[in-house]
Nucleic acid binder design. Structure first.
Ligand SMILES: [Zn+2]
Ligand SMILES: [Zn+2]
Ligand SMILES: [Zn+2]
Ligand SMILES: [Zn+2]
Lengths: 141, 141
DNA sequence: ATGTAATTGAGACAAATTCTCATTTCGGCT
DNA sequence: AGCCGAAATGAGAATTTGTCTCAATTACAT
């Protein structure tokens, strides 16, 4: 598991420069929690490093994604959002109101192992999302 | 399971008009396969119904999503993409090259039932994506 | 055939993302 | 400590994606 503070180190380990803009972005991702959009990262990042440019945010988020240090997820709005960490991430997503519920265990380990062998694929993380109707939206049709 | 041709019927059954633009869009989704983006649906749809407007594509994709006849997924690029069907959808996604592999079985039924009860949530479908490095990208680092 | 509410197209608008390029910065190497 | 080259950045233009408005059209029940 690559948690929290390891993002910066993983960046350096992979041979990328540890610049001030990148540090700010990483710090935002670490403290800011999950489900941040690009523009939220930009806004929060500028509180740390005011010069921070939008292009740099996009470039860095893409880099971190390619390195597997963060992962894009799909919520209700148009913006791409990201979560940190390498393990699994799990949602219940209401298709009516967009509410998001999280759960922890999903038991995909065995399936992951099977698929890794079958496709010769190194699995680093996963996203499991269930779609449907939440408690509230079931009543007020 | 709501497969192929049933999309039109499900639309009618739900009380929506079966218009020419909608027919074109449904036809594109049925024949065009999965992972189509909004703009791809627009381009392909205009080959069937040239007047087709972008707004109508967005409106129809949203409608079909709300009805659970299609579902948005997240691939490598910025655009929202859609798949058809109600059940589960399963990917292996290479974080290097963006390659997508599909698999069929995932055994999430039991988990779905547990979550449905625990959260009082009506589950209609799910997306399971594994992220990692595909066979090709393991070699040419 | 008629009436009516649902649907549409067109384009303005807004938001999200990508691109370009001149300038700056990191980090290895004296 | 200072130099260098490659990597990274900022600024803003350009593009792409998604939303909204409204007058005109259309499906469908009657
Ligand atoms: Zn989450
Ligand atoms: Zn499944
Ligand atoms: Zn797929
Ligand atoms: Zn690959």
């Amino acid at each position: 598991m690559d948690t929290s503070k390891n993002i910066s180190e993983a960046l350096k380990r992979a041979g990328y420069k540890l610049t001030a803009p990148r540090k700010a972005i990483v710090q935002v991702l670490e403290k800011g929690g999950d489900h941040l959009s690009s523009s939220e990262v930009l806004t929060l990042g500028r509180q740390i490093y005011p010069l921070l440019s939008r292009a740099t945010v996009y470039r860095t988020l893409e880099l971190l994604t390619t390195l597997g240090l963060i992962r894009p997820i799909l919520l209700r709005d148009a913006a791409q959002r990201y979560v940190t960490g390498e393990g699994g991430h799990h949602h219940l997503l209401c298709r009516e109101c967009g509410a998001v519920f999280e759960f922890e265990r999903c038991g995909a380990e065995q399936l992951a192992a099977e698929l890794a062998e079958r496709f010769d694929f190194q699995i680093r993380g996963h996203l499991l999302e269930f779609y449907g109707i939440c408690r509230n939206c079931q009543t007020d049709d």
